[in-house]
Design a protein around this nucleic acid. Structure first.
Lengths: 257, 257
DNA sequence: AAATCGAAGTTGTATGGCCAACACCTAGTT
DNA sequence: AACTAGGTGTTGGCCATACAACTTCGATTT
């Protein structure tokens, strides 16, 4: 009943120790060999654990020197990035959301390309409004391929987390590509988000696939500016992505957690 | 004189084979064992190579099945993401840029926090305008700590790539954190970018550190909307980030490369 | 005082092996 | 026809070892 592999649990312990400032910041981690002895595992397992921390931007790694603890990095795992609800809860918000409209359609060219569907396969389009602290924060236009749509369509309209529901149904997101740019609010955006038509919005387009590479959703999200920023951390080895909450305060901008 | 480790060179070969559609998309890669035989290395080395491809979103990996080739992913390495000039060249543009203003200052609170500097250490502030196809595309306000600033300050004002120069000087970026959100053009932005004051711009704030975790730069870049979008690919394993060029065309938007 | 050399410590690369977990197909059973 | 059980192929997790490449620091030499 161990479930989680050893190297992940070790990474978790080390991450905790680091965020509790047991070493740094700027401090040096024990050597791989020392950690291996301490945890009674081989050096390879320790290296796997440290690889995870390096990917999260928590520690450096250079040949010849011990690893150095970096300044507190925004640590959020993939699951949190993938799910708006999960992310919101992690920053202490109680997310809300409701379906504005949904229905089956024939896919347009965009949807066919991103969902790799046959032209005659139906897709489910869902328009969902997301709130933070009761305020409209994001509008989500998602298209699901038929297989996923049949699961999603019967959800209650105020379901907070579609992702978590899909996971319980055995649908797991393994891979996603996000494109971030700027868009202008159309009349519908304006009405639902409480801004004016033509106002600039932060747009995130997302395509998610399952572990086998099969497309699971194609979505265009529009965020009210000032409510959210995207944070990407990349090292030579790799890069987790996070969504950050902004708290306007007296003209300047602070970051929560 | 081999220089590059074996697993990297194998990854490079496999990447080539994949983008040449030797297997997919949707096709299955040979098994780790088969590849190990083919390249005459151990399975572990093959696994390291495949790890790189997985991180770039080129292939999946699931216990029990062979790896599957995903649809063409935007492949750009960290070096390209880090350098505007390098990125621009990779999409076939000839980047230009020039320094508008630069000078030594005492760091403000923000700069002290991000550059971890002592309050009395000087910092070099540089305002640089970047062009794509001769058009203003981005305005870059960068602050360098003293050590880096002394190298940068003597550059010709029309140097295309500061990053590449720094690399030749032995300064390497190993780690960066990007925050992407929306900003409004102030009067200076408007004058230099050729837009109106108050116009929305895509903002990227970036903090880069060297392999030891020492801050190398703190920058705020403002992009003219429609010229650039940010692409982040994340899998359960990790996430490279890329910058994408947008080509407006007849009201809709297409993607180059 | 400055430069050179060398030893110790540390991470990176690579090998080889073993078993567990999982996907997939087949043959057999119900 | 549907379901079950098992076998095979494949990737994930973990171990033990060896050497290479690099950093750091102290001692020696210049």
């Amino acid at each position: 009943m161990t479930q989680e592999p050893r190297y992940r649990r070790i990474a978790e312990e080390l991450r905790h120790a680091i965020t509790e400032h047991a070493y740094g910041p700027g401090g040096k981690l024990p050597s791989e060999g020392a950690l291996a002895e301490q945890y009674e595992v081989s050096r390879g397992t320790i290296r796997q654990a440290l690889m995870l921390l390096r990917q999260d931007g928590l520690v450096t790694s250079r040949r010849g020197t011990r690893r150095v603890v970096l300044d507190d990095a925004p640590v959020q795992d993939f699951a949190q990035m993938q799910s708006f609800a999960r992310w919101a809860r992690s920053i202490g918000e109680s997310p809300e959301g409701r379906v504005i409209r949904q229905g089956w359609h024939l896919p347009d060219a965009d949807e066919q390309r991103h969902l790799r569907g046959e032209p005659d396969a139906r897709v489910l389009r869902v328009l969902r409004l997301r709130l933070l602290s009761g305020q409209p924060a994001m509008l989500e236009r998602t298209t699901y391929p038929e297989a996923v749509g049949t699961i999603v369509e019967n959800l209650a309209t105020d379901t907070v987390s579609v992702t978590e529901f899909l996971e319980r149904a055995g649908v797991f997101v393994a891979d996603a590509e996000h494109t971030i740019d700027l868009a202008r609010a159309d009349r519908e955006d304006a009405a639902l988000l409480g801004c004016a038509a033509g106002d600039p919005l932060l747009r995130e387009r997302r395509r998610s696939t399952d572990p086998a590479g099969v497309p699971l959703e194609w979505s265009e999200d529009r965020y009210v500016p000032g409510s959210v920023a995207f944070v990407v951390h990349n090292s030579l080895a790799s890069t987790p992505m996070t969504r950050h909450h902004m708290v306007p305060q007296g003209g300047s901008v602070l970051w929560s957690r």
